[in-house]
Design a protein around this nucleic acid. Structure first.
Lengths: 332, 332
DNA sequence: CCCGTGGTTTAGAGCGCTCTAATTTGGAGC
DNA sequence: GCTCCAAATTAGAGCGCTCTAAACCACGGG
């Protein structure tokens, strides 16, 4: 179980520990002769450098701390994937914690991540209080993803929710819809941004906004759709849902009510998750480039870790509309 | 940016570094008086121990390496969630890498994880070659999840795929189905186990197995369903799909062909992913307790890390059937 | 033959902590 | 007041590595 150390390699190769260190770090000022001797010795012993010892001695870190509010959520999993992609190519490792949107637990998770003195910290949709983040940002680069925030020294990466909502409305209005209802995502700031984007776009088309309070879940979509149907009389001809699962929830309620989508009512989702792409669902939706957000977040962190200064950046990625089969020209 | 060290705390509290170390580790042999002094000094300086230095000095690790073949896959994301849950309560941290089922990349990922000398290594559905795992297992506890494998010294956690397939067949046979086709998952060993379980269950009911080669994807399900329909004449009355997305793929093809589910044809999925629970899909499926698998994997690792010896354990978790709306008594 | 030169190699001090062994302390008991 | 002992505290070595500064080593020029 006891792995060989640099000392062992040095002894076997007949050189000093320092020289082995140079070879391991790929220094160019080592004679080819010695390099081979060291490499051979290392291979013979099955030696590989001890990342923690290296980190401690060099006072640098190749760890990126990642706090995910909820891994169940495919949305975040894909952002992690984007971060991982960049981390791998840039030579960083991810150290991961989940927070479950519980403030105390997330506070603890941040502390635990920081105890490893990572090169940077990424928070995905986390509920960590602002002051904790501000404090963390004084010690290392911090990036907040998928949560609009303005904290001194903290970079952020978000999609342009206002634009996304507008894309949905423009698409529907373009098809000839005039009664378009929005099922919103509740009281998160992202939901607020989308809601306001929706309202602004509606007014821009000379239409009256109509919002039904909902949430980012299947059940939320069902409930909102049910409430909509209960209003009886003047049903809208289209719905802009809070996100994909919300849209699917609505879809099933409409189907049960005997409404045909998209003929009786059009539905647009948000996120372009794998779900929406299933042929069985074929949901028209707004694509939020998640992997791109993850990559951007990682690049930001790496840049800062390498000494990149400058004021906090608030990056917005551009969403795009993916038209599938749940939207069409209104029948009425 | 320079965080205080134990030395700083010791100076401020007027004690030795060793005493601070004892306090930080919660030793019981420190006088209450000094403990408070140290704690106060630490709080005043905003001190928190350096996990890597601690790890190096104590020759122990609180890191668990996790290699996930694919985080996009919700199945794995939920296993990670289970691992994370246990890691948190047991005082471990997760260091994560994705492999993307690329052998070279996974080999590299394993090496990188090992360079941190973690306390254990978990592989989720990874394609890492057996010899790499066997070598790793000689250095630290290794657990392979969601991939049936027999490697010396390597523990495994899998669901009982044979039983899962049998549950599906029993359910359908119990409803009166006699022509039940299986869309399989290709040539992974998990797929083989399910296929064999399916075949055995069919024979136990005196029925003839009928397998269409497929894969664990939406498109795979569509293709298999299309091939089934092309056979014309004697359509089966039920399908046991490779997994949930495969089932959903089949569902949409059946719908397009004018077949009603479950009246014309029943469909059973596998995995009980969030997808199958959507009211719009309402897929009868076999639940594979993913979080439980993750927890089991983490416990195994923690147990071994704490010195647990004994031969490799091959754990099987028990799947269960979740009946929703895609199965019913056959019409014909 | 000595010196300088540039390229290699190495000694040795630390990184921030733990751990063992040794030292100090504070009473209890006489 | 002195001895003893257990409890509390500390000195110092060392975990596996990096990094600075110094040492070494041909070799060509004067």
């Amino acid at each position: 179980m006891a792995r060989p150390t640099m000392e062992d390699v040095a002894a076997k190769a007949g050189v000093s520990r320092a020289l082995v260190s140079l070879v391991m770090r790929g220094s160019s000022k080592v004679s080819e002769h010695r390099r081979q001797a060291v490499l051979d010795a290392a291979a013979g012993l099955g030696y590989a450098p001890h990342a923690m010892a290296r980190s401690l001695a060099s006072r640098t870190s190749t760890l990126l701390g990642v706090l995910v509010s909820d891994l169940h959520n495919q949305f975040f999993a894909e952002i992690v994937d984007g971060i991982d992609e960049v981390a791998r190519t840039e030579g960083f490792e991810l150290i991961l914690n989940t927070g479950g949107l519980d403030v105390e637990r997330e506070r603890d998770a941040v502390a635990r991540l920081l105890s490893f003195r990572p090169a940077g910290l990424a928070l995905l949709g986390a509920a960590v209080p602002t002051d904790v983040l501000a404090a963390a940002a004084r010690q290392l680069p911090v990036v907040v993803v998928a949560r609009p925030a303005r904290i001194a020294g903290v970079d952020t990466v978000n999609d342009d929710g206002g634009l996304g909502a507008r894309l949905a409305v423009d698409h529907l209005a373009g098809l000839g819809h005039s009664r378009i209802t929005h099922f919103d995502g509740g009281r998160t700031s992202e939901a607020r941004i989308r809601r306001e984007g929706y309202a602004a776009a509606m007014r821009a088309h000379g239409l009256r906004p109509d919002v039904i309070r909902s949430e980012y879940t299947d059940a939320g979509g069902e409930k909102a759709a049910t409430r909509l149907l209960e209003r009886g009389a003047s049903l809208p001809t289209a719905v802009v849902a809070a996100n994909d699962v919300n849209a699917v929830g609505a879809l099933s309620v409409f189907a049960d009510a005997g409404l045909t989508v998209p003929d009786d009512i059009s539905v647009v989702g948000y996120d372009n998750t794998a779900l929406s792409g299933l042929r069985h669902v074929a949901l028209t939706t707004v694509d939020q480039p998640r992997a791109e957000m993850g990559r951007l977040a990682a690049h930001t962190l790496v840049h800062r870790a390498r000494g990149g200064r400058g004021r906090a950046q608030r990056r917005l990625v551009t969403p795009s509309l993916v038209v599938r089969s749940t939207t069409a020209v209104p029948r009425r």
